[in-house]
């Protein structure tokens, strides 16, 4: 089986926003419809501080609350474990937005339909470049690949960095964070 996932190494992220903007190009998103959100954590006190930037996008949960609450079946888990939204089925009830524990869904203000990181469904087809947020990141923060293949880059990096989902035991997220 293939189960796509991603490693986000926040130790390298400087918060330049390139991933978010690149994603908006690729997916033709409105300006107020980003798939990536950033959280900054500052600890310590001047002059000894620590600052971390955590980019977040749909965690592609295996145990996805957004899918189980969607009344129309628009949100569903597709092949390769990617959580997809059928925009032609979405009525825009926003139930999935309320159910997503990470608040990583957005509504398209023009169509009223809900959207979120697509894990670049098309782009992982053979011969295509990786997800745009991955290839656009100058710092090499992101690694994309098959979590079920222990030899994939992403699996090896996860082992090497001891990365874990943002919240363990919550939704079986497919995005791992090295922090």
């Amino acid at each position: 089986m293939t189960r796509y996932g991603m490693l986000v190494n926040t130790r390298k992220c400087i918060g330049c926003y390139a991933c978010r903007e690149a994603c908006q190009h690729q997916n033709k998103l409105l300006d107020n419809e980003p798939f990536i959100r950033y959280e900054e954590r500052v600890t310590g006190k001047f002059p000894t501080t620590d600052v971390e930037m955590v980019p977040m996008q749909c965690m592609q949960c295996t145990d996805a609350p957004c899918v189980s609450v969607c009344p129309t079946g628009a949100s569903h888990i597709g092949p390769d474990g990617i959580v997809v939204i059928d925009h032609g089925r979405c009525i825009g009830c926003l139930y999935c937005m309320a159910a997503c524990p990470y608040q990583l869904r957005v509504r398209n203000e023009e169509t009223g339909a809900v959207d979120k990181c697509r894990f670049c469904v098309a782009a992982v087809k053979p011969g295509e470049a990786a997800s745009n947020c991955v290839s656009a990141c100058p710092m090499g923060v992101r690694t994309f690949g098959d979590l079920d293949d222990p030899e994939s880059n992403v699996s090896r990096e996860i082992r090497a960095t001891g990365a874990k989902p943002l919240v363990e035991g919550l939704t079986e997220a497919a995005i791992y964070y090295a922090r």
Binding site: Q26, N27, G73, V84, I85, G88, R89, R118, V121
Partner: peptide, 15 residues
């Protein structure tokens, strides 16, 4: 069929 109403987001993304 209801499933064929339109493609999922993303499937038409590789022009």
């Amino acid at each position: 069929s209801l499933g064929s109403w339109s493609p999922a987001f993303g499937e038409d993304d590789a022009p």
